[in-house]
């Protein structure tokens, strides 16, 4: 047991830290789920595409573009890249089976990773700061001792997650585009005979996923303070774990899965001193395995309801 177990400031710090990291995993998990729902593919390059997007933000801000405008531009460019990759690379390969698609996303992973390293180098660069991230940019909650405060970055990351979930909900549940997307996700062939342009729904899923990833990577970089060509490597694993936890085809599941994972990874090493911090990947995977043993479809995954 940690000696700080009865210290409220310590526990609250674990809580906010866990939620902040969890929100970042949730964003990556959302990207993975949005691709998976319609196309049934897992894009292994999701994290690297996000890193590329974050470097686009970095490059734009370095040239004097205000950071949120830079994020907006990178968001749109990422959407175009995601949609374009689906149309130009994934769909032609899909006819040859699932395996070529997996290989293609793996190849993309390696190519983008190397490409970023070649263009921007292997040394970390200073991350753009969409949210004020100085020492004084915080809300003091407990004056202490010991004090407890929440940084603007933590609040901002959580606010972005909430805003995105709300936006996604409106888009998927309240628009015709969203209806088409969900119809394709529910039954691809039936959607096709309803006249829905199925291919365009795939592109939409890939595009929105890539755009979300870019936003996630920009925030990951800000919380880490720096950005480098491997920034999203481990985050992708946590995102995959969060998506699995939530049930691979569920948008709310991805959000909850990410937050749960973040909290577990903050509290378990924080409270039990035997568990070293760098075992966090192991903890994440153990949590996922335990949930899957109890509920194979994940926390929110769809059990098939169709009766024959």
């Amino acid at each position: 047991m940690s000696p700080n177990i009865d210290n409220p400031a310590y526990l609250l710090t674990l809580l906010t830290g866990g939620l902040t990291n969890g929100a970042l995993y949730a964003l990556v998990a959302l990207a993975i789920v949005l691709v998976y729902k319609t196309t049934s593919h897992i894009n292994l390059a999701q994290g690297e595409m996000a890193t590329l997007g974050a470097f686009a933000v970095f490059e734009l801000t370095r040239r004097g573009v205000p950071v949120w405008i830079a994020i907006g531009i990178a968001f749109l460019l990422s959407f175009a890249l995601g949609a374009g990759l689906e149309r130009g690379l994934i769909r032609p390969l899909e006819r040859r089976g699932v395996f070529p698609v997996i290989l293609a996303t793996l190849a993309l992973f390696l190519i983008i990773n190397a490409g970023v390293a070649i263009i921007w180098g292997t040394q970390p660069v200073e991350a753009p700061e969409p949210i004020p991230g100085g020492i004084e940019d915080k809300v003091d909650v407990l004056t202490g001792p010991p004090p407890f405060f929440v940084t603007y970055v933590s609040l901002g990351v959580l606010a972005v997650l909430v805003a995105l979930l709300l936006g996604l909900w409106l888009l998927l549940e309240k628009t015709k585009l969203g209806l088409g997307y969900r119809a394709v996700a529910a039954n691809r062939e039936a959607a096709q005979v309803m006249g829905i342009p199925v291919g365009r729904m795939y592109m939409f899923g890939w595009g929105i996923a890539a755009a979300l990833g870019t936003l996630a990577a920009a925030l990951v970089a800000e919380t880490a303070g720096t950005l480098d060509f491997n920034s999203m490597g481990v985050i992708l694993i946590f995102g995959l774990a969060a998506a699995t936890l939530g049930g691979f085809d569920s948008v709310p599941g991805a959000a909850v899965g990410g937050l749960v994972l973040g909290l577990v990874m903050a509290f378990v090493p924080g409270l039990f001193t035997v568990v070293e911090g760098d075992l966090s990947v192991v903890i994440a995977l153990v949590v996922v395995l335990v949930v899957l043993l109890v509920r194979p479809q994940g926390l929110f995954g769809t059990k098939t309801l169709e009766r024959v």
């Binding site: 969900r182 039954n187 039936a190």
Partner: peptide, 14 residues
Amino acid sequence: GVFGSLSVEENLRV
């Protein structure tokens, strides 16, 4: 081939 995860009314809208 109904859309199982959509409501009855959403199926009709599709």
